[in-house]
Nucleic acid binder design. Structure first.
Lengths: 217, 217
DNA sequence: AGAACTAAGGTACCACAGTACCTAATTTAG
DNA sequence: CTAAATTAGGTACTGTGGTACCTTAGTTCT
């Protein structure tokens, strides 16, 4: 049988408990603030729920009552910092040229990412992927060292056939097929890729794209 | 003090221990075989090291002596199945047209993915990303519902200006900027994105790509 | 003011990845 | 053939995410 009878005098001993029990919004804000502090100086994996709880002067149970996982609480904390910026991002640039619109949009996104200290955060995502490291395996097939290399060869072959003019092609373009494939794979709700989809990718996306560099016959 | 003195008669009781202690290659093969079996019928997260150990009739310690993590052992198991196919993938298609080369390559990749039962495995990767679920957060900004939508508007604006002909544009093309950004973020060794990179992305990749659809002035 | 309810505090627990440390079988060196 | 080195077997432990369950402070209803 537990000995909770001591509690009444424990309380007086227990350091700085100001007799005030935080609730609702107040508590939530304190927790998120603590999380935000920690997340900026700690790698995500090294951040523990107990650390957050301790830092916010509460305990895990309280955390899990509001957020269902560690990642949820971190997200919530980030959101408090960025909702203003996110609003700003909702405004559609209209600079008078397609290129100009893109430049402005990307600049805004860049600002958002900087505000988020995202180097750490995506460091985390990459580490998790790396930790699973099936990524390591697939990188061999889908990433630069292999797929981009192969695309490079395709273009060389096409140039030899007189199909295309190599000089205009930026290095980054060789990575595009790999990008497209990887995105299909990482996509949040994607099902298994079937060959119909892959063919569509080539005919409706890749080839029209590359057609910019195909010589007119 | 432990009672290992019983072992000699325990052995006779202990089911089917054939008195033969596996080592080296033999043991390793058995473990990988067990892993492979399990991985095909179990979601990655539900797969535990103890399960693998039990299934291979050994114990965790032995597993960690050879592989440094759960993901490593799963990868190793997969590799046993696919090294042959991977070799095959190293051959460069040369069909006589750029489009043809792509089709053949993608088909080969598709076969590889199918062989790997990758629906489960990438299910896993997505779940981990989802689990981190910072993904959820960024999806709002970088994924279809927002970024692609914005790109769509850009094109509409451009069409209104007479800069571009909307009819030729495949839906998938609207997703391209999001893809490019996400890949920068997920890329295994990427550093923080700076605005110079983003601008290069637009000028050297996106715009040349979309130029296929720009009206000749 | 007091009873009933709500939400926070707190402790202990579970499952699983990964480690420490031991014993025992098998191989290899001498 | 025996001793030393190697490597498998086994148990128990730690740390962390997450849950169960209880007690207690504070709020709200009557």
């Amino acid at each position: 049988m537990p000995n909770y009878q001591q509690n009444s005098h424990n309380k007086s001993l227990k350091s700085d408990h100001p007799t005030h029990r935080r609730r609702g919004q107040e508590l939530e804000q304190d927790i998120l603030k603590a999380t935000l502090n920690l997340v900026q100086e700690t790698k995500y994996e090294d951040l523990t729920m107990d650390m957050i709880a301790k830092n916010a002067q509460t305990n895990k149970t309280v955390l899990y009552r509001r957020w269902s996982s560690k990642s949820d609480i971190v997200i919530a904390a980030l959101r408090t910092q960025t909702t203003g910026l996110a609003e700003q991002l909702k405004q559609v640039p209209n600079t008078g040229s397609l290129a100009g619109d893109f430049h402005q949009l990307f600049a805004q996104i860049n600002t958002l990412l900087a505000t988020l200290h995202y180097e750490n955060l995506f460091g985390l995502m990459r580490e998790r992927l790396g930790g699973i490291s099936i990524r390591d395996y697939f990188d061999k097939f889908l990433q630069q060292n292999w797929l981009s290399q192969m695309v490079r060869i395709f273009f060389k072959q096409a140039a030899d056939r007189g199909e295309i003019d190599l000089d205009q092609i930026d290095e980054s373009l060789y990575d595009l097929p790999a990008f497209l494939l990887l995105n299909r794979i990482y996509a949040p709700h994607s099902q298994a890729i079937d060959s119909a989809q892959l063919n569509h990718l080539i005919d409706a996306v890749l080839m029209p794209m590359y057609s910019a560099f195909l010589k007119k016959k």
